[in-house]
Amino acid sequence: MKLHLTVNGAATALEAEPRTHLADLLRDQLLLTGTHIGCEHGVCGACTVELDGAPARSCLMHAGSCDGATVRTIEGLVDDPVMALLCEAFSAEHALQCGYCTPGMLMTARDIVLRLPEADEDRVREELAGNLCRCTGYRGIVRALLAVLASRRRPGSGDPDSPLSGCLA
């Protein structure tokens, strides 16, 4: 079937079997290999992308259902200020080891920062439960997220709505 997607801002026309899932489309046809494939049944979170503005499992979205969708992958967030803060914090807090889960973790982390600005550690852990890290790097990942949340809450750090307000300690 023919399908049309907007991927990282660019309109894209593709040809695929209806059974092909979005993660394979992104990786094999568009060479966007930042989206990783882990369990392929919606449990591990490695393939998480932004679909029509909200995080979704790209391994569970088959080509037919994706037709007309707007997709943002980790590559599309290079210039995103929240993602920049998260990347810096992930590095500072040693929140990745092998890096396999990291793109999915970052997509989820960005959603947490934007949707739940008041999240505490318990809430962060609960919200991260759908992303598995087999290096067991959760402590660093949670610390990185909490650092970004705290930096955006810090008083006197300029416009609180600006993602660049404040900086990491």
């Binding site: 998480t48 679909l51 909200a54 979704a56 979205m61 919200e127």
Partner: peptide, 9 residues
């Protein structure tokens, strides 16, 4: 229910 990425769909 499950995880936010699942709840979104």
């Amino acid at each position: 229910i499950a995880y936010r990425a699942v709840r979104n769909r």
